[in-house]
């Protein structure tokens, strides 16, 4: 199926336009998930250590961290799989663990999805019998968008297809909170875009809150509104994605004569990183793009290119500010 067709289908089918409103800024909305001093130990290993965080309703929250940072543990606590060792995990004010009242609104797509039956037809019947908000119409639509047949043997499919099957079931269950571990992993770009469209619609229409964990910053940077960085069981920071990038700029410059970082600093730039390869200099500075241009143009550069700033670089900066060893985190 081409992208175009998918878009048309997604747009055309529902007459009943969104009644949900997401007029309030994310920060002012009611929290859906609250982690209160949340800790989880496995024996002597601290998988999560005193994590405090709140995730607002209808937001798309990205949880980023390397292997073993505690992302999956956090998701399992939010899904009610694990009991916190200390502290609490709340969903709309209710403890999640062993609480069907909270769990009926939550669907968890684990990194390795499990299917009790070997085709989607039986699996969908299982989900339908458990989740009150299951939407058969939505399910039918999803199996048309994702190329998995209802009767196809699930155990013969690839990892990426498994994930798609799990996502079909999870989204059709219409959770109010969707938890996804490495959600976009193994999806090709077309499916990734389709998934984003569907998730965007569920957020806009249904007020679904989404929590995505990933090792890969790039996977999340164009889709999340807020990101949290986990490292060795601690939540280093939670920030609005757009705010992170604000006031940081990166540029490639060249001058006729050699210029040192000190010279740039004395010219009024707040240099965070300075690297020179021959006469070509790359800088990361805590200035807006306009400031950067104005100051550098006064120095008559031969070349001045303002480069796009990746989230990765933003994180590196944020972390170095908190004096963490960066290479260890984002290696």
């Amino acid at each position: 199926m081409t992208n175009k067709e998918t878009v048309e289908r997604l747009n055309s089918d529902r007459v009943n336009e969104s009644t949900a409103t997401i007029n309030l800024p994310v920060e002012e909305r009611e929290a859906v998930i609250v982690a209160d001093n949340l800790s989880k130990y496995f024996g002597a290993t601290k998988a999560l250590d005193k994590v405090n965080c709140r995730i607002a309703g209808a937001s798309i929250f990205g949880l980023i961290g390397s292997n073993g940072a505690g992302k999956s543990t956090f998701l399992r606590l939010a899904a009610g799989v694990y009991r916190p060792t200390e502290g609490s995990m709340f969903y709309r004010g209710q403890v999640v663990f062993d609480n069907p009242c909270a769990k009926k609104d939550i669907v968890f797509v684990a990194d390795q999805p499990y299917f009790h039956f070997d085709n989607l037809k039986k699996m969908s019947a299982l989900y339908r019998s458990l989740y009150e908000r299951w939407d058969q119409e939505l399910y039918q639509e999803l199996i048309r968008i994702f190329p998995i047949g209802e009767d196809q043997r699930l155990d013969l499919l690839s990892k990426g297809m498994h994930r798609q099957a799990a996502l079909i079931l999870a989204i059709a269950a219409k959770p109010r909170l969707l938890l996804m571990d490495e959600a976009f992993d193994g999806l090709d770009p077309v499916m990734r875009q389709n998934l984003k469209r569907i998730l965007a619609r569920q957020v806009a229409d249904d007020g679904m809150t989404t929590l995505i964990a990933s090792q890969n910053l790039r996977e999340l940077e164009d889709f999340c509104d807020h990101v949290g960085l986990l490292h060795e069981g601690g939540l280093l920071f939670v920030e609005e994605l757009d705010k992170l990038r604000l006031g940081l700029s990166k540029a490639q410059i060249a001058f006729r004569e050699d210029v040192t970082a000190e010279q740039l600093k004395s010219a009024g730039l707040e240099i965070l990183r300075f690297s020179a390869r021959g006469s070509l200099i790359e800088i990361l500075s805590r200035n807006t793009e306009a400031e950067l241009r104005t100051i550098l143009n006064q120095m008559n550069p031969l070349l001045l290119d303002v480069l796009p700033l990746t989230l990765e670089e933003v994180f590196i900066y944020e972390l170095s500010r908190k004096s963490y060893v960066v290479s260890e985190l984002l290696a």
Partner: peptide
Amino acid sequence: MTFQIQTDRGKGGTLRRKSGLWWI
């Protein structure tokens, strides 16, 4: 809270559900 959530379309909600124990 002004944040509203669309009500169920009704298709899934009309099913009568067994208690968890009987389901398992």
